[in-house]
């Protein structure tokens, strides 16, 4: 199995609902976003490229790309970051992480990995989201887990579930009948930093 995403950039409206769902589902600390809606256009969020009225703007939602050839897995000195052989999910073992941040230096997708620079702070004094989501530790690196705690229950990642534009598709890329595999086969797509050779498992349908 090789779980991956197909994200339809024609449907995505950059609304941050997926990011917010992830934030709450995983009880992320203040200031931490594992998934971000990035604007492909002007120099600031929600601004377009060009000069009015000839302007263009689309959105890319970016989280860990769960690469097939992940740069991070290669460099982690203690193997805290590893690719699950059964599912292809790139996982993070918080207990093993020594906080050296080598993975953050190696990952070409700047911003998908976050380090807990302090004791995780929350505005709410109890854990929100799923009770099975891994608790957070200070001074370790974290990133999108592909909602591993949900996969374990046979459910899809929260970002996919909550996308109000129905732009996110997820499933087994190795299964030719799956939705994602079909979309990747039938639609034009692009991938982020494709010539870095990391073989990301996220396909942006264009």
């Amino acid at each position: 199995m090789r779980y991956g995403f197909a994200i339809d950039t024609k449907r995505c409206i950059g609304c941050h609902t997926c990011s917010t769902a992830c934030r709450i589902e995983n009880n992320l600390p203040n200031g931490v976003w594992w998934n971000r809606a990035l604007t492909e256009g002007g120099p600031e969020m929600d601004t377009p490229a060009g000069e009015f009225p000839d302007v263009t703007m689309t959105y890319l939602t970016v989280a860990c790309q769960h690469c097939d050839n992940p740069a991070c897995v290669k460099v982690c000195p203690v193997g805290a970051t590893y690719k699950d052989p059964e599912t292809g999910v790139v996982r993070q073992d918080y207990d093993k992480c020594i906080g050296c941040r080598m993975c953050m230096a190696a990952c070409p997708y700047t911003g998908v990995r976050s380090f807990n620079w302090e004791e995780p702070q929350h505005t709410i004094d109890f854990a929100v989201g799923d009770a099975d989501a891994a608790p957070h530790q200070k001074h370790v690196v974290e990133k999108c887990t592909m909602c591993w705690h949900r996969l374990a229950k046979g459910e899809e990642p929260m970002c996919v579930k909550t996308c109000l534009a129905r732009a996110r598709f997820w499933g087994d890329l190795d299964d030719p009948e799956s939705e994602v595999a079909t979309l990747v086969r039938e639609r034009s797509y692009k991938q982020l930093l494709a010539d870095e050779g990391t073989k990301p498992s996220v396909y942006y349908l264009v």
Binding site: G31, W33, A37, T39, M45, L60, V62, Y109, L193
Partner: peptide, 11 residues
């Protein structure tokens, strides 16, 4: 490498 603007927090 990814310079697209997005949410920026103190972290």
């Amino acid at each position: 490498t990814l310079d697209l603007p997005g949410p920026v927090t103190s972290m």
